[in-house]
């Protein structure tokens, strides 16, 4: 046997990978986690977009600059981004309303009653779970319908 060294303990924090790579940690029966990740990603996109948006709006006062910018929007990539942005706003808003009820007002997560076997968590089977499915459903419908309307105007479909 080799010489013994000073023991080193392993920092085993999952980091960001634990959040976004689905197979690092597989928590069962937990769509709230998917909503959390999506809420965060859409939120990040929106806060990055906000200063850009304000800068772009400031161009409107100058007719020439605004014409140049509008020409940029002819780019298919910009048009596609517009659709992604629309989806982000819709998801972040809908899920945000659910989170406002759950986090801000403590609604939809059941009452803290004594647990009974098989120890199902109340908060994950209460009304907020139904709201969550509604959020996903409405989001996808609005996003897809919005996409069809938008891309029809842009001449994609």
């Amino acid at each position: 046997m080799g010489e013994k060294r000073k023991p080193r303990f392993l920092e085993n924090r999952l980091g960001i990978m634990g959040n976004i790579v689905p197979w690092v940690l597989m928590i069962r029966d937990n769509p709230e986690r998917v909503a959390f990740v999506l809420h965060r990603l859409t939120g990040l996109l929106l806060i990055i977009y906000l200063p850009v948006h304000i800068f772009v709006t400031s161009m409107t006062v100058n007719p020439q600059k605004w014409e140049d910018f509008l020409r940029l929007e002819e780019n298919p990539l910009a048009q596609f981004f517009l659709w992604i942005l629309f989806g982000s706003i819709v998801f972040h808003g809908l899920n945000g309303i659910r989170l406002l009820l759950v986090e801000g007002l403590g609604k939809g997560i059941g009452k803290p009653e004594p647990p009974e076997p098989p120890y199902k968590p109340t908060s994950l089977s209460s009304a907020q779970r139904k709201w969550l499915y509604a959020v996903f459903a409405i989001w996808l419908i609005v996003w897809i319908v919005g996409g069809i309307i938008l891309f029809r105007e842009f001449g994609w479909v």
């Binding site: 304000i54 800068f55 400031s58 409107t60």
Partner: peptide, 10 residues
């Protein structure tokens, strides 16, 4: 400050 300033300016 940047966003509020620029937005109000516009």
């Amino acid at each position: 400050a940047y966003m509020l300033g620029l937005g109000t300016y516009t």
